[in-house]
Design a protein around this nucleic acid. Structure first.
Lengths: 246, 246
DNA sequence: TGTTGCGGTTGACCCACGTCAACCGGAAAA
DNA sequence: TTTTCCGGTTGACGTGGGTCAACCGCAACA
């Protein structure tokens, strides 16, 4: 489509060594020298429009993706149409790890807003991580972190009550916004009540009611997708002090 | 404790290249030459008595473990004592991947019966997998498979009804026993109803009732922990045809 | 050989959450 | 400007599975 053009300042800012997402992304903890070796690993970039899939279940696995801007959900579908949202991903987070196991993607990744990802060729990642110890180690950490996160979700789904689940979800979102330099107390959710519900194993009405209840109790101020956390420790208390049920 | 003794035939049978678990374990798909390079990676072996932990939450992470004999559960505990079983592991499966992310284990791994594991030093695994492409690739696959498995459990917990969950659990166990050369139709569960319940996000009474119901309907024959599957496709149908609920 | 204890089963009851349905408000389309 | 639509909220009601409690049987141990 495009003719080759000279490298611009904007292009430079796109490589890992210049990326402001560094601390949150795959290269975290790598030294400057190693970092520069990463720059040609992350070749293409891809823009994904809101509601569009980055990849789908069954797509051949070729690359993993680092989110540069925007956010995604991942979900798995049962034949009968039931959807389970398995996660929400924000900038710096890695998508596509599910594909390594059988060289096919095993879930859908859908943009929650117009987004951009860095495409990381998987064969080249393996190659480079055989040479760059820091990259290898960091990549393993990213995968392991995903496993730990999944265990947390199982805890949510298996052992918590509706309001506990939502409280845990809000605290988690808040913490991740904070890590990205946004307000920890006030943020905009990009997903619908139905998607939150699917993630938390609840129906959208239950999510909505729980939000209302939190509002009544002065824990948060809710205005559709706009959330303001008024009582952080109140939310935390909610989680630990509802035992004995379910 | 022991004085050095000459290598025996029994010792030899313990290295990866001689292990009959090969197909199920980390070295799956590696060629013979690479396989021999693995043999000194898997150094120590450890026996774990029933109910004893292989590692606990908070333990420093040093190694991953391949199950040689026996079986385990992994669980996470909430401060208030609630337990969530995150998985059951059988021979050939890998334990400890959760520890990579922060160099501390984030769950407990407990033997369900007297068991033995191969201890795989993590630093040496990273080292060797920089040299042996097949090992690197296989290790990544093992981690990815764990992520995919976790998504399946989320689907279970978030979108399925009690009987669907138990049916899915039984079919999964059956399939894994088959892969190990045991009967697919008849097997012995090593975990209690409470542990199954925790894994499936149900109370033990609900698990027990679901078992009884399956028995009434001629799907399985249940005698405490001994399970005989009488109608495999009946169980499968149960899963897909209970939509619209929950 | 009786005793103790744990894991499992079963019944009666109840409640958290799902279901169904009405309604609301903002955004996009007409 | 009105209409349509979609996401969200709220209420009334139903139910799947949790809770509580009794009981059973096998296995370990005295």
């Amino acid at each position: 489509m495009k003719n080759p053009v000279p490298v611009t300042a904007a292009d430079l800012k796109r490589v890992c060594s210049q990326c402001n997402l560094l601390e949150l992304c795959l290269p975290f903890g790598m030294d400057n020298q190693d970092l520069h070796r990463l720059d040609d690993l992350v070749g293409a970039r891809r823009k994904i429009k809101r509601q569009q899939p980055l990849y789908r279940t069954g797509d051949p696995f070729e690359a993993i993706y680092a989110i540069r801007t925007g956010s995604f959900k991942t979900d798995v579908l049962l034949e009968d149409g039931r959807e389970q949202v398995t996660g929400f991903q924000m900038t710096g987070e890695i998508l596509g790890l599910d594909g390594i196991s059988v060289e096919l993607h095993s879930c859908n990744a859908v943009a929650l807003e117009d987004s951009e990802v860095c495409v990381i060729s998987y064969p080249r990642l393996e190659e480079l991580s055989r040479l760059v110890e820091g990259l290898q180690h960091q990549f393993h950490k990213v995968m392991s972190r995903e496993i730990v996160r999944d265990h947390g979700v199982m805890m949510l789904l298996g052992s918590m009550r509706a309001e506990e689940r939502l409280a845990a979800f809000l605290l988690n979102m808040s913490q991740r916004f904070t890590a990205r330099g946004f307000s920890s107390a006030e943020f905009h959710l990009r997903m619908t009540r139905e998607e939150i519900g699917s993630y938390l194993g609840l129906k959208l009405e239950t999510v909505s009611r729980a939000f209302s209840r939190f509002q009544e109790e002065g824990l948060v101020a809710v205005q559709q997708k706009h959330i303001r956390i008024l009582d952080n420790s109140g939310l935390k208390n909610l989680i630990q002090h509802q035992a004995g049920l379910r």
